[in-house]
Computed example of a mutant assay.
Amino acid sequence: MRGPTSPVRVRFTPDQPHLHVYGKLGDLYGRKRVFLVSILVFLAGSADCGLPQTMTQLIAGPR
């Protein structure tokens, strides 16, 4: 009988498919370039969530 599942394993299991995608992209285009693009995408998403003044603007998006 197996013991309880580790919380760490449960947390990182959904991230596994992304590792293969980013690994392949890193092989094709270079790790540094993929890393910088991922940082830019994260910053754009953060700015997109940080700029709205109200909850309605956040939900509705730009109009």
Rank of each mutant, 00 (worst) to 15 (best):
M1A: 15
R2H: 14
P4Y: 04
P4D: 10
P4G: 11
P4F: 06
T5D: 13
T5N: 11
T5E: 14
S6V: 06
S6M: 04
S6R: 05
P7V: 02
V8H: 03
V8G: 02
V8F: 03
R9F: 08
R9N: 13
R9G: 13
V10A: 13
V10E: 06
R11K: 14
F12D: 04
T13M: 04
T13S: 09
T13D: 04
P14H: 03
P14V: 04
D15L: 15
Q16K: 09
P17L: 02
H18Y: 08
H18M: 06
H18L: 06
L19W: 08
H20R: 14
H20S: 12
H20L: 11
Y22P: 00
Y22N: 03
Y22H: 08
Y22G: 01
Y22K: 07
G23Q: 00
G23K: 01
K24A: 15
K24F: 12
K24R: 14
G26T: 00
D27P: 00
D27L: 11
L28T: 15
L28D: 11
Y29E: 04
Y29K: 07
G30Q: 02
G30S: 05
G30I: 03
R31C: 11
R31Y: 09
R31T: 14
R31S: 13
R31V: 14
K32M: 02
K32S: 11
R33A: 11
R33Y: 07
R33S: 08
R33G: 00
R33M: 02
V34D: 00
V34N: 01
V34F: 02
V34L: 03
V34H: 02
F35D: 02
F35H: 10
F35L: 05
L36R: 08
L36C: 02
L36Q: 06
L36D: 08
L36E: 08
S38N: 07
S38Y: 07
S38W: 06
I39R: 09
L40C: 05
L40D: 05
L40Y: 07
V41M: 01
V41K: 04
F42H: 10
F42E: 00
L43N: 06
L43I: 14
A44S: 10
G45Y: 09
G45H: 09
G45N: 12
G45M: 03
S46F: 15
S46E: 10
A47G: 09
D48P: 01
C49T: 12
C49K: 15
G50S: 13
G50I: 01
G50Q: 09
G50C: 10
L51P: 01
P52C: 04
P52H: 04
P52K: 02
Q53E: 15
Q53G: 14
T54A: 03
T54L: 04
T54S: 11
M55H: 10
M55A: 07
M55Y: 09
T56P: 05
T56V: 12
Q57H: 13
Q57T: 06
L58R: 13
L58F: 10
I59H: 13
I59A: 08
A60S: 15
G61R: 08
G61H: 06
P62W: 05
P62R: 15
P62D: 01
R63L: 12
